[in-house]
Design a binder for these strands. Structure first.
Lengths: 169, 169
DNA sequence: ACAGAATTACTGCGCGACGCAGCGATAACG
DNA sequence: CGTTATCGCTGCGTCGCGCAGTAATTCTGT
């Protein structure tokens, strides 16, 4: 399937070197804008996203997902509770654990903040056929897997095995 | 082009509600991990990304792209200069201005940090044909435009015209 | 041509988010 | 049943950030 089109290398370079990074930059920036608008930290909105994506979890796993210590996560949860976005629920099976679940207001606030982008994206996707949508999903899933794998690799690496080991640029 | 496939709504919902958010969460988390690995702030790596994407710019426009005040941007540039990732160059045409340009070491450090993900993504894209790659590029570009437009809209909105105006969830 | 306004980048200062270390409470284990 | 591990939470110091003010330079209007 490869090397059929001589422009394929150009397509790959455009995706990897331009399209994806350009989008990623704007995603990070949008999250920051949304955080400022909601009056919370970037970390807090990231936490809300994780909650919306994984469902209610404990502070410790939440801390892992946002790269925070459990202490800082505790403070973060304090802020989100004070903001009315999140609720602490005691775990009946393990009385040490506390489950963090988003409140309806919290869910509404974040969905409202992203409703504009959602509408735009829905419009944009109107220009794509069903097959193309499937292609997009397929790529997003693989990108998700690869990104997760890379996160795991970087977090469990001795902090300097990149030049020797890593693939050349 | 719409409503041909009864599953189309499911595809749209999966992209907008699951695939894109899931990937976006991992992207910002990866940026955080990379920042910790490079020993700088999330904002700093975002700044480096902007420099790599837009080329050398002034502190003020850099501040706009990372949602910082010019004062904080000045400090950020101080950090990046101290880290050897960036250089201050006087603008000969306007002696007030200072151009910020990444150093070779800075470029190498960030590309090295992402080399793993780049390799993985290149592998992933091997499973896609040329037409599909074009589709991916097309979507990323529209997503880029929509995200930029949404950022601009949110930043210039009176802070509370979301429930009345915004599209319903 | 020159005085005033505007732009650019840069510093005190206070606030707040984060990491680190330590603590009490609960659970798991031998 | 005593010991150890896990979970979540609190002082304390550090540091990034916004706000306000400043010096230098450019632009503007008459």
């Amino acid at each position: 399937m490869t090397k059929l089109n001589p422009d394929r290398e150009a397509l790959l370079a455009e995706i990897i070197g331009d399209a994806v990074p350009g989008w990623a930059i704007l995603v990070v920036r949008l999250n920051n804008v949304v955080a400022n608008r909601l009056g919370v930290t970037d970390t807090d909105v990231q936490c809300l996203h994780v909650l919306g994506h994984h469902g209610p979890t404990t502070p410790s796993v939440l801390a892992k997902h946002v790269n925070l210590t459990t202490g800082s996560a505790s403070r973060m949860i304090d802020r989100l509770v004070a903001a009315g976005c999140v609720r602490r629920v005691a775990d009946p099976d393990d009385r040490r654990r506390v489950l963090i679940e988003p409140t309806q207001e919290g869910l509404d606030r974040v969905t409202a903040a992203y409703s504009g982008l959602i509408a735009r994206t829905r419009d944009d996707l109107g220009a794509f056929g069903d097959e193309e949508l499937s292609t997009l999903i397929r790529f997003m899933r693989t990108a998700e897997r690869s990104t997760a794998a890379e996160i795991h690799r970087l977090k469990s690496a001795p902090d300097d095995e990149e030049s020797p080991t890593g693939a050349r640029v």
